[in-house]
């Protein structure tokens, strides 16, 4: 895959796509979107990068180890945030932060933090999925 048009477009598009994904994750609690949708867009940026510059380039930018760690971190972050609610003497995933004013970025209490964890997990999972599919038999087994 050595296409000049693809590489030029990808160079411009990948940062925009990933920025869009991060924005969807960050604004998940005040506007449509959230962890899953934003994480998927973020991962699509990585996949586009891999398609344009080759899987080796993606391995340099985002090693498989890092992706796997990010995946576990996202899930652990979700679980720990839930336990914070239990520690406060309420339900699992209960809100322990001030709710803030509706519609602002700093609102929704714990939801924004949960969404960030979900986004990280989904993005890393999508990239790993693509890598496993394209990696072939030579890929490292988990």
């Amino acid at each position: 895959m050595d296409d000049l048009i693809l590489r030029t477009v990808a160079r411009v598009l990948v940062p925009l796509v990933q920025l869009c994904g991060l924005a969807i994750i960050a604004y998940g609690h005040v506007s449509p979107g959230g962890g899953f949708a934003g994480g998927t867009v973020l991962a699509a940026g990585f996949v586009l990068y891999a398609l344009a510059f080759g899987q080796e380039a993606l391995d340099r930018r985002l090693p498989e180890r890092t992706a796997r760690t990010a995946e576990s971190l996202g899930a652990a972050w979700f679980a720990v945030l839930g336990l914070v609610g239990l520690a406060a003497g309420r339900n699992y995933l209960a809100n322990v932060l001030p709710p803030g004013s509706p519609g602002r970025l700093l609102s929704g209490g714990i939801i924004a933090l949960v969404t960030a964890g979900v986004g990280l997990k989904v993005a890393a999972t999508m990239v790993t999925l693509f890598r496993r599919l394209m990696g072939g038999e030579g890929g490292e087994r988990p």
Binding site: T40, V41, A44, V47, L51, M126, L129, F130, L133
Partner: peptide
């Protein structure tokens, strides 16, 4: 639907 699935 349009993004990741198509790529996969």
């Amino acid at each position: 639907g349009a993004g990741v699935t198509s790529l996969l």
